[in-house]
Amino acid sequence: MKDIYNIGELVKELNINKETIRYYEKIGLLSEPKKDENGYRIYSKKDIEIIRFILIVKNLGFSLREISILMHDEILCGNIEDIKKIVESKINEVNEKINNLEETKKLLEKVKGTILSKNIEGCEDIEIYLKK
């Protein structure tokens, strides 16, 4: 692995686009990069690791706002109890989403299996049926 990267090399290394990197800089997830003698942005191995961390945690369902809090408070490098609380909170959030999706699925199955097989003529009839 090299020590210094330009934005094009960073894009290839991390398989993301330039706008994503610039956006992370703009919102403070990534520090303003140094510039070479030609004024081009240059990035370090540390920048690559930070972006990798952001991408991994984002894939786990954390928002950029949550990631910003994690990074700026250095929670992931700090107290294990803080890390546990954050992960437990995210698990609860995911479970809530799963429950909501399961309820939606049940409703859709009810519509598919029951309402569509009856001679219901309009939305008003569907609404009345669903309230039963």
Rank of each mutant, 00 (worst) to 15 (best):
D3V: 01
I4T: 11
Y5Q: 02
Y5E: 03
Y5V: 04
N6A: 02
N6Y: 03
I7V: 11
I7G: 00
G8S: 15
G8P: 02
L14S: 02
L14G: 01
I16K: 04
I16C: 02
I16L: 04
N17A: 05
K18M: 08
E19N: 07
E19C: 03
I21Y: 00
I21G: 01
R22W: 02
R22Y: 02
Y23D: 04
K26Y: 00
I27S: 08
I27Q: 05
G28Q: 09
L30T: 10
P33W: 03
K35R: 15
E37K: 10
E37Q: 13
N38S: 15
I42D: 05
K45D: 07
K45Q: 13
K45H: 11
I48E: 11
I48V: 15
E49G: 03
F53R: 02
F53C: 11
F53V: 00
I56K: 15
I56R: 13
I56L: 13
V57G: 07
K58P: 02
E66D: 13
E66L: 07
I67N: 00
I67W: 06
M71N: 06
H72R: 14
D73I: 02
E74S: 14
L76E: 01
G78E: 07
G78N: 12
N79A: 01
I80A: 14
D82E: 14
I83A: 07
K85R: 14
S89Y: 14
N92E: 09
N95F: 02
E96M: 08
E96T: 03
N100A: 08
N100W: 06
E103K: 15
T104G: 07
K105A: 04
K105R: 14
K106H: 13
L107I: 10
K110F: 09
G113H: 08
T114R: 08
I115Y: 12
I115C: 13
K118G: 06
K118M: 15
N119R: 14
N119W: 10
G122D: 15
G122S: 15
G122P: 00
C123E: 13
E124C: 05
D125K: 10
K132C: 04
